[in-house]
């Protein structure tokens, strides 16, 4: 039994394993932030939370990008490199669109006459900026990683047959997607 488990464990690539531990670490960060939000909510002077509509659009965009990255992994495994590259690029572009939509969302607060920072800001909205902003930073990290992989896959000098980098990137991408869905549902529930 122990032998079998030993063999099974060896199957996971160290880089993938490292990613999983990192995901655990990122989860702790957002668990800290959202539980801070809950603690803060029970205290006086708490404004009712409002979410700009555009956040729901960005949710759809990031969901779509999860599909495209999964297709990219599939095409890589099939060695269909042209489609793989186009899916990779699509994912990165969708990630970028997501980020732009997030920024638009933060700007919409101004038209709703709500201040996120500075004098007169309420912590309930500052939290949205801090939490969604940190999530955005994680998406930026993912976009950069995808861009690096895309550039490498275009290199003629170097051929890579290992699916590990793109699989690691895909897992991370799905994670930031699920993380955003958690956050938007959390904000929605906290309304």
């Amino acid at each position: 039994m122990a032998e079998v488990m030993n063999v099974q464990r060896k199957k996971i690539h160290p880089h993938k394993f490292t990613l999983w531990v990192a995901i655990g670490s990122i989860i702790m960060m957002f668990a800290g932030l959202t539980s801070a939000f809950i603690v803060k909510r029970s205290q006086p002077n708490w404004a009712m939370l409002e979410i700009p509509r555009v956040f729901w659009v960005s949710t759809l965009v990031i969901l779509a990008s999860s599909v495209t990255i999964q297709l990219a992994v599939k095409y890589f495994r099939e060695r269909n490199m042209d489609r793989y590259r186009s899916m990779l690029t699509t994912t990165a572009v969708l990630g970028f669109i997501f980020l732009v939509l997030q920024v638009i969302g933060f700007m919409q607060y101004r038209s709703m006459d709500i201040r996120l920072v500075g004098a007169g800001s309420n912590a309930s909205f500052s939290f949205v900026l801090a939490i969604a902003g940190l999530h955005g930073l994680h998406v930026i990290g993912g976009v950069i990683a995808l861009a690096i992989i895309a550039i490498r896959s275009n290199s003629t000098r170097r051929r890579n047959y290992s699916p590990v980098p793109v699989e690691v990137a895909a897992t991370y991408w799905h994670f930031v997607d699920i993380l955003w869905i958690y956050l938007i549902l959390f904000f929605n529930w906290m309304k």
């Binding site: 960060m29 668990a31 920072v117 500075g118 004098a119 801090a130």
Partner: peptide, 21 residues
């Protein structure tokens, strides 16, 4: 450590962006 990082980021917000966490 990530939880301390969250706390420190909110403190940076309070210090530099005028929030009231």
């Amino acid at each position: 450590f990530p939880v301390l990082l969250s706390g420190a980021i909110l403190l940076l917000f309070d210090r530099n962006l005028g929030t009231s966490f």
